[in-house]
Structures are given as C-alpha cells and as structure tokens.
C-alpha cells in the first residue's frame, strides 16, 4: 500500500506493530497500514498494567467487524501503562494509528531482531 503513513522516527515489526523506543520503555501500537487492512476497529482487548509479556507473544487483540488481529510484543518485559482511552474509542486507531498507542512496556531483554526502520517497513508493504 503506497498510501500508508510510515513515520520516520519509529521502528516497525513485520506483523505491523510500530514501536517507539524511549530508554528501556517502549510504546507499541499498530501501523496505519494495519488499521487500513483491518477496517473499522470496534474493540481493543488491552493487557493489564503489571502483566508480563514475552517477545513474539500476544500483547493485545484488535477487533474489527469481521476480523480480529493479535498485537505481538516486540520484546520481553512488563506492561507499565495502557491506553485506557481505547476502551471507549477503539476507532481512534483508524483516525490516527500513531497517536493511538496501545501499551507501554518496560523491557527486560533485547528488542526483536525483526524490527526494521521506516524504509525497511515501506519495503515490506
């Protein structure tokens, strides 16, 4: 998809998560391309603060009308904050996928080796 927005300052997973790195805390969301493919998002199943997550395992679940997608954790760690506003306005991901972050994780290990930069992600689309 040539029309998707891919900000330069983020890292991307091939499974269409974006990652903002801020020391040992990372912020995770889904990309503009992903929200477009899913269509109207109606619900986000958020993790709980304090929950331990594993790299490559499910972090959250995004529900559209007739499809559902797992959001995978890009590193091991612990959820330190969730975007609770999504509980009432899951559709904000459709409006702005990069403002509508899902969770912040304090990482306890390396980031997934599969993460790529904006140019690398554009090449995947």
């Amino acid at each position: 998809m040539s029309g998707s927005i891919v900000p330069e300052d983020l890292k991307y997973a091939p499974s269409h998560e974006w990652v903002r790195i801020d020391g040992d805390v990372i912020t995770v969301g889904i990309t503009d391309h992903a929200q477009h493919e899913l269509g109207d998002i109606v619900f986000v199943e958020l993790p709980e603060v304090g929950q331990k997550v594993e790299q490559g395992k499910g972090l959250a679940v995004i529900e559209a009308v007739k499809t559902v997608a797992d959001v995978y954790a890009p590193a091991d760690g612990e959820v330190v904050e969730v975007n609770a506003a999504l509980a009432d306005s899951a559709g904000s991901i459709n409006a702005d996928a990069y403002a509508s972050w899902i969770a912040k994780i304090k990482i306890s290990g390396p980031l997934s080796a599969e993460l790529v930069d904006a140019a690398g992600y554009k090449a995947l689309l």
Binding site: F43, E63, A64, V65, K66, T67, V68
Partner: peptide
C-alpha cells in the same frame, strides 16, 4: 459481535 465466534476467532 462476531469476533467471538469460531468462523473468525
């Protein structure tokens, strides 16, 4: 609320 169901989930 079909995302609960087998044909999707």
């Amino acid at each position: 609320a079909q995302t609960r169901e087998q044909h999707i989930r």
